[in-house]
Amino acid sequence: MALPLMPKATAVWLVENTALTFEQIAAFCGMHELEVQAIADGEVAAGIVGLDPLANGQLTKQELERCEKEPRFRLVLSASDIPRPQARAKGARYTPVSKRHDRPDAIAWLLKHHPELTDAQISKLIGTTKPTISTVRDKSHWNAANIKARNPVTLGLCSEMDLEKEIALAPRRAGVVVAPQVDYATEAEQTFDHERERERERERQEEADSAVPAFLRTGPVKRDENEDDGF
């Protein structure tokens, strides 16, 4: 839902100059009803000068009177020729002058340890340009002899979170399937556990065999035909 310019200042004016309910003002200005009530009580926005939505063409007098007569109605924002503020497009990251000489070192580190990153990602991370990345890559940079690969996080050119985010996105952008890493330590532990379980099974089997009478373990005893039955 579109909101008026400077919603809080507009709410101040509506509270002071109209008979609208707090609920109507809150719905029009995108605020909570209790916040509008706090404005009326002087607890909030005490130093804000009210902004007349009639004067700037965001609300008509007829619309205001219509809603004042019926609390169930909601104010409708009028079309206005006043340009609305636009979100600023994200540009290249700003790098302080004191750290700009560290960017070639950071580029060299990223090219060495994370070749999967694109030039656009590197530019975004440390606020550099693609031509600079190319000169560092092909060692044609004017200061190539003194460039030392250093982590951009430790240099303060980007955060660890931003670096990990770009690394995670790089394989998907390049269409590379990353093979799952095998935890050899875990596999060794599992093998050891299986061996112990088999050993315990053998011990349990031996204990069970020892509890069985010998004649049952060796089978029925053959009778000697020459043996006297005692009769």
Rank of each mutant, 00 (worst) to 15 (best):
I126F: 01
L117C: 03
D105E: 04
G230T: 06
K124D: 09
T60N: 01
L216Q: 13
E187T: 10
D81Y: 03
R100L: 04
G230R: 08
Q37H: 12
M1L: 10
E189P: 01
L169S: 01
A208H: 08
E160H: 11
E203G: 03
K139V: 10
A11T: 08
R93V: 05
L5R: 12
R72E: 10
P213G: 11
K112L: 15
P4L: 10
A208L: 14
L59K: 09
A144W: 12
I25Q: 05
N56T: 08
I167D: 00
P85W: 06
Q190D: 06
R223A: 10
D228L: 12
F231C: 06
C158I: 07
R103C: 06
Q190K: 13
R217D: 00
A89P: 02
A214S: 05
R204C: 01
E189R: 15
V97P: 00
R74H: 05
R72H: 04
V12R: 15
N56A: 02
E227D: 14
T18V: 06
G230E: 07
T135H: 14
Q86S: 09
A26F: 10
I82A: 04
V36A: 02
E187W: 11
R88D: 07
Q190F: 02
K112W: 12
R74C: 04
T118G: 11
A188C: 05
R66W: 11
P7N: 07
N146I: 07
S134I: 05
I122R: 13
Q62P: 01
K61G: 00
L51H: 03
F22K: 00
Y184F: 12
H194P: 02
P213W: 09
T10I: 07
H101G: 07
S140H: 11
T60C: 00
G50A: 11
G230K: 09
P180M: 12
G91H: 09
A38V: 00
A79S: 09
M1F: 05
L34G: 08
E166N: 01
C67I: 02
L59A: 09
V44S: 12
E195D: 09
E116G: 15
M31Q: 13
E206S: 06
V182D: 04
P152T: 08
M161T: 14
D41C: 08
T154I: 09
S123C: 15
H113R: 15
L14H: 06
I133N: 03
E203V: 11
L64S: 04
E33L: 10
